[in-house]
Design a binder for these strands. Structure first.
Length: 563
DNA sequence: CGGTTTTGACCTGCGC
DNA sequence: GCGCAGGTCAAAACCG
């Protein structure tokens, strides 16, 4: 233990009050505070008190040394004043040991040492001792001050930790969004390309079958690719705004993708006007329909909360509906092409119809991901089942019916011109007549959709996403000309008719099991007793495939408009 | 003061 | 070509 120490003054000069002065104690590596009692200018003989305050945290092991330290101080003091009966250091230490009052404030880490020494216990001179109450108050003040300082430091440290955690959370959130969308796109596009290639082979009479992909979704992207003309330039000739999310895939065709998206939003009229050289492709571009996803929900609010930030840019009274239609665009990122229309239903004004169009070019918060993913998947499903064929626009409703059971009024897919639209209806209560198969129903854990729209919407992306894994099977069902091809693709044999194909699909236990497993996994691995997952495809008389779904509070229905 | 909403004007596609 | 309807623009108003 180091014996050296530094002290401002000991004993203090007579003309100098060392109140609140500090000295550095090399032994503890910290500053010590000399209290007024120690600096009392009274003669050192007799009783005196001193107090030492440090900010040491682990000071217990220094106690003996402190005793020695103060004993030496007393010795020095006595020697300097040439006391006749000055005690030696051992005596002083003994006195200190007997009369010391050591207070360690464990909580604050402040070490307070109060030593009452007296050279002779019989001699008590209260006149030279400071008031004990003042001393106590001063000790408490010091302790509180140190505590406050320590608390401030702790607060600052916690703030830093919070900022760091927030930053990490945001980073992970961005990454999660990116990964989710990447996987979703890859799964869907893979099946689309697979089916498209097959479709092209079936139409081998044409040397070049235009392949056109249209992927749309709030969380996804609109993509368009035509083999004959894969490049679409922006009206201004500049690069469109790149999406950090949507560019994760389709790397080889991202230019086309983004251009198609931008052009779709800018309007084909502007493209043709500003870039007449592309007139050859205008007809092709005209076929790039803007798919939309419409969500019907009961709400008294002027707009449903979907997690995104919107700015209203217009309002119009549409024909046939006295309620004005409001136009919003996404303002979460500059240049985001996503827009939506909000309008109340003319028949039931408690129903709010929100129509989304376009795809975000920025990561979405989790709250927005729910709706964005659901609409994205719905639109993807729609468009994947409505690829051009010799028959023209293909109805996708059968596709929707195929995996959304008890389907009459939850999700309506319409590929009719001008824009293909899928409508997710969250306003309907289940029709018991639609679900007469208690053994073959899966139950969605929807709460009352009128009151818990967010929770319902949050489940939609998973439902649609899982359904995408099976959609190619049903995509084939959409097109009478492609039925056999689709069946061949999926089952490796030729299906003789639509009914046969449907029967083949619905009889496929693998499909049933896969769909049930998918839904089960979505619903929490099937462990939730509230989730009754039983799926059996139902073949309807119009050739559609349906799985049954029922829930007391919410349901999913997909209708076939019979196109 | 910056962002948002309002609202009339404007543009475009489409049907006749 | 004209009118209609849907959609968008942009200046003014509004708001926090």
């Amino acid at each position: 233990m180091a014996e050296s120490f530094v002290i401002n003054s000991f004993p203090p000069p007579q003309d100098h009050q060392l109140y609140d002065q500090y000295f550095y104690d090399n032994r503890v590596g910290n500053y010590c505070k000399v209290e007024p009692a120690l600096m009392d200018s009274s003669p050192p003989r007799g009783n005196f008190q001193f107090q030492l305050s440090t900010s040491m945290h682990d000071h217990d092991h220094n106690r003996p040394d402190e005793m020695d330290f103060f004993a030496r101080k007393i010795d020095d003091h006595d020697r300097d004043h040439d006391h006749d009966n000055a005690s030696d250091g051992d005596d002083r230490r003994a006195l200190l040991s007997r009369s010391s009052e050591i207070d360690f404030n464990v909580n604050t880490g402040l070490h307070l040492l109060t030593a009452n020494t007296c050279s002779d216990h019989s001699i008590v001179d209260d006149g030279i001792s400071p008031d004990s109450e003042d001393k106590r108050a001063k000790n408490e003040l010091v302790a509180l001050q140190a505590d406050l300082e320590r608390t401030n430091i702790e607060n600052h440290r916690l703030k830093d930790l919070l900022n760091e955690a927030t930053s990490n959370y945001n980073t992970l959130q961005m990454h999660l969004v990116t990964v989710m969308q990447q996987q979703s796109h890859k799964a869907a596009d893979h099946e689309l390309e697979q089916f498209s290639d097959l479709h092209a082979r079936k139409n081998s009479g044409a040397s070049e079958v235009p392949r056109q992909f249209i992927n749309l979704g709030l969380g996804g992207q609109i993509s368009s690719e035509t083999d004959a003309e894969p490049s679409l330039s922006s009206p201004e000739g500049g690069d469109p705004i790149r999406s950090p999310v949507s560019n994760m895939d389709h790397l080889s065709k991202e230019d086309d993708v983004d251009q198609a998206s931008q052009n779709a939003w800018m309007g084909s009229n502007k493209v043709s006007r500003l870039n007449p050289s592309k007139s050859v492709d205008q007809a092709t571009e005209a076929t790039i329909r803007k798919a939309r996803v419409s969500v019907r929900a009961r709400s008294e609010a002027p707009m449903i909360t979907d997690g995104c930030q919107w700015r209203k840019y217009g309002q119009k009274i549409a024909k046939g509906n006295p309620c004005p239609r409001a136009y919003y665009r996404c303002t979460m990122a500059t240049g985001c092409p996503v827009r939506k229309q909000v309008q109340r239903c003319a028949d039931d004004r408690s129903i709010l119809i929100t129509t989304y169009e376009g795809n975000h070019n920025h990561p979405l918060p989790p709250a927005a991901m729910a709706m964005a993913s659901s609409t994205s998947s719905a639109a993807r499903m729609l468009l994947s089942g409505s690829m051009p064929s010799a028959d023209g626009i293909i109805n996708s409703n059968v596709l929707a019916r195929s995996f959304l059971p008890c389907s009459n009024n939850m999700a309506t897919i319409s590929a009719s011109a001008p824009f293909p639209t899928v409508t997710l209806d969250l306003t309907q209560t289940p029709n018991p007549l639609d679900c007469q198969r208690p053994q073959n129903q899966f139950q969605l854990p929807f709460q009352n959709p009128q009151q818990n729209f967010a929770s319902s919407a949050a489940l939609l992306p998973q439902i649609f996403s899982h359904a995408l894994h099976n959609q190619s099977k049903f995509s084939g069902l959409q097109m009478s000309q492609d039925i056999e091809a689709a069946a061949t693709l999926q089952f490796g044999h030729q299906a003789g008719s639509l009914a046969e194909t449907v029967n083949a699909l619905t009889a496929d236990p693998n499909f049933t099991a896969a769909l049930a497993a998918a839904i089960s996994s979505v619903m929490g691995g099937g462990s939730n007793p509230n989730n009754n997952v039983n799926v059996t495809p139902i073949t309807t008389n119009n050739g559609s495939v349906t799985t049954s779904n029922n829930n007391k509070n919410g349901n999913i229905k997909v209708t076939n408009s019979g196109n």
